[in-house]
Measured scan of single mutants.
Amino acid sequence: MAASAHGSVWGPLRLGIPGLCCRRPPLGLYARMRRLPGPEVSGRSVAAASGPGAWGTDHYCLELLRKRDYEGYLCSLLLPAESRSSVFALRAFNVELAQVKDSVSEKTIGLMRMQFWKKTVEDIYCDNPPHQPVAIELWKAVKRHNLTKRWLMKIVDEREKNLDDKAYRNIKELENYAENTQSSLLYLTLEILGIKDLHADHAASHIGKAQGIVTCLRATPYHGSRRKVFLPMDICMLHGVSQEDFLRRNQDKNVRDVIYDIASQAHLHLKHARSFHKTVPVKAFPAFLQTVSLEDFLKKIQRVDFDIFHPSLQQKNTLLPLYLYIQSWRKTY
């Protein structure tokens, strides 16, 4: 089996927390979720979201995140109150960019949308954001926290390059993509939290790379249903696996070995980020709550012996909000 052949990389499970039942964490995340308004986002309300009498641009960002990046939404709820709305805006910006690729039928249209967001970032730093909910909220975040323009532009530029429907040539190319998107998002989150620390940035770099790799793995069944495969070609070739094997949902050992190798790289990034947690300011830990969902996925895929098409991998963990709150309460990542 794939797991038994390579099992030495995987460390002990961390979500089991001995003695936790003896201490009762304060009510927090679930209460916040219940208090949030929840009407559906419609095209009509989106168009009017920044106008008078609408929910408001902040509510639009929150709803977009809740629907399109639920794990990011849950993590954002546990940030300090003064930072929450800015991170909602930042993550909503990322969602807007991420959904361009799947929402257009022609690359030219995707490039036009990316050009809109490039100009939007430029206009935000000229205090002239367009009348668009996410743009307005992002402008507020930039003004409030003096966010670095370079990180925002890196996210747009990398998403634009990724409009080509090509597999990553190697794991390094996937890591570079993750660094310029997910890690950049974390650098900006640290700025919102008021953290300027080399060790925190180092952790953000590795956690962002782990996030990018896990996202690529999780999306494999969806991409396969659209006749697309984006997994690193070098690892596929190493194990003699073709793109057609993934399109046919082949579950042979060599296919699972490909998934094992890729998942192991995410695991190593996560492990390395945690190896120097004592040197990272505690104030930075809330920015890294996504490690909970990353670890949850890596454990699940290990349990199914790296069968990327196993139905259990597509099921939401209903206990994730609780695990996130516990992680926040324990002040760790």
Rank of each mutant, 00 (worst) to 15 (best):
D165L: 14
N94W: 04
L62P: 05
G53L: 13
E82D: 11
F246N: 02
Y70F: 11
D234V: 02
F246T: 04
K161P: 03
W329P: 01
V280E: 00
V282W: 09
L270W: 01
K166D: 10
K300T: 09
N94F: 05
V280Y: 00
S312Y: 10
A98P: 04
L319P: 04
F297E: 02
A167H: 12
D69T: 00
T215R: 05
L65C: 10
L79G: 09
L217C: 03
F288L: 08
S85N: 11
W329F: 12
K107P: 13
A167Y: 15
H269M: 02
A203S: 06
D127G: 10
D69H: 06
Y260N: 06
G56F: 09
T57Y: 14
S184L: 15
K154A: 06
R113W: 05
L298M: 07
V156Y: 04
L324Q: 04
E96P: 00
I262E: 01
V156D: 05
L79F: 14
D261K: 10
P133H: 15
M153Y: 12
N317C: 10
R66S: 06
M237T: 10
L97A: 10
E295I: 07
A48W: 15
K107F: 09
L313T: 05
D245Q: 13
K149C: 05
D201H: 05
L270F: 02
T332Q: 12
H223W: 13
E244H: 04
R274N: 01
A219Q: 05
C236S: 06
V292P: 03
T279E: 13
L289K: 04
V292Q: 07
A266M: 01
L188A: 10
I262L: 15
K253A: 13
S86R: 02
H202W: 05
D69Y: 01
A89L: 00
V214P: 03
N180L: 10
A54N: 14
K67D: 10
D201V: 05
G240S: 12
S205L: 06
Q211M: 14
D307S: 02
D123T: 06
H131D: 12
Q290K: 05
N180E: 07
A141W: 02
L74K: 01
A54K: 09
D307F: 03
L78D: 01
S184C: 14
N180A: 15
I124C: 04
Y187L: 13
L62K: 06
L247W: 04
C75Q: 11
S76I: 05
V214E: 02
Q315M: 14
A210V: 04
V255C: 11
A49G: 05
S76R: 02
C61D: 04
C61E: 03
V280R: 00
L238R: 12
P286G: 13
A219L: 05
S225F: 15
R113M: 06
R66H: 08
P281E: 04
L90A: 05
T120R: 03
K67T: 09
C236R: 03
R113D: 05
H239Y: 10
G208I: 00
V121E: 04
K119T: 10
L78S: 06
V104N: 11
K283M: 11
S264E: 06
L324F: 10
E82N: 14
P311L: 08
D234K: 02
H202V: 05
L268K: 08
N146P: 04
H267P: 04
V134W: 02
Y260V: 05
A81E: 14
R66P: 01
L188W: 01
N162K: 08
T332L: 15
H59A: 10
S83T: 14
A48K: 12
D257G: 12
V258I: 09
P311Y: 07
K118E: 05
A287W: 00
W151D: 02
V292I: 14
S264I: 08
L138P: 02
N250E: 11
C236I: 12
V282G: 13
R274P: 01
G72L: 10
Y177M: 08
L322S: 05
Q243N: 04
I155S: 05
A89R: 03
C216V: 15
C216W: 04
L193N: 02
L78R: 03
T291H: 02
Q132K: 07
A263Q: 04
Q315S: 10
S183L: 03
E137I: 01
E244D: 06
Y177D: 05
E160G: 13
D305I: 02
K143S: 08
G224V: 09
Y60L: 08
A266F: 01
W329C: 10
N254R: 15
E175L: 06
F93N: 00
D102I: 06
V258D: 00
R169I: 10
K118C: 04
A47E: 03
N162L: 11
V292M: 11
L217Q: 00
L294K: 02
T57G: 13
M153E: 09
C75G: 07
D164F: 13
F285H: 11
A48I: 15
S45I: 06
L217H: 01
T181G: 02
Y187R: 07
S205V: 03
L247I: 12
S312M: 10
Q182L: 09
L289W: 07
K271W: 11
H277W: 11
L152F: 12
Y60M: 07
L188S: 12
R274V: 01
E244S: 04
F276I: 07
V292H: 12
Q290V: 09
Q290L: 10
K228M: 14
W139T: 06
D201L: 05
S85W: 14
N254Q: 02
A203N: 01
G51V: 08
H206W: 03
E175K: 03
L152S: 00
A98K: 04
V241L: 08
L65G: 04
T189A: 09
N162V: 09
S83R: 14
R150P: 06
D157K: 12
L74N: 04
L319I: 13
H239Q: 05
V304A: 13
V100M: 11
L186M: 10
P133Y: 06
Q290A: 13
D165I: 14
N170I: 01
W117K: 00
F285L: 13
Q327E: 06
Y323T: 14
D252F: 14
S85H: 12
E106K: 06
D261T: 06
W55K: 13
P221C: 13
F88H: 10
K166M: 10
H206N: 03
P232C: 01
K118S: 07
A266V: 06
R227C: 11
V241A: 13
S86I: 01
S312R: 11
D58R: 09
D123Y: 05
Q211G: 13
Y333R: 02
L185A: 09
A263H: 04
R227I: 07
M112P: 12
A54F: 15
P311A: 10
F288A: 00
D69K: 02
Q132W: 13
L322D: 00
L238F: 09
Q290R: 04
D201P: 02
S293T: 13
P130H: 07
A204W: 02
E160F: 13
P221T: 14
I109T: 14
E244T: 05
D157N: 13
Q243E: 04
A135H: 01
N180W: 15
K331V: 11
F246C: 08
K172H: 10
V255R: 07
S105G: 15
Y177C: 08
D245Y: 06
A92W: 04
A141K: 01
R169A: 12
E295D: 11
H272E: 11
A54C: 13
R248M: 07
E179I: 03
S76G: 15
F297Q: 06
N254H: 15
L64H: 08
T220F: 06
F285P: 01
E158Q: 13
V255A: 12
N317L: 07
V280C: 06
H267Y: 09
S225C: 10
F93R: 03
C75R: 05
W139K: 03
E295Y: 08
C216S: 10
R256H: 07
W55I: 15
Q211A: 14
E137R: 04
I195L: 13
I136A: 11
R330M: 14
L320Q: 07
L217F: 03
R150N: 07
H145G: 05
N250S: 08
E137M: 06
P321S: 08
R91L: 08
L77Q: 04
K331G: 10
I301Y: 01
Q182D: 12
V229E: 04
F88E: 03
N162H: 13
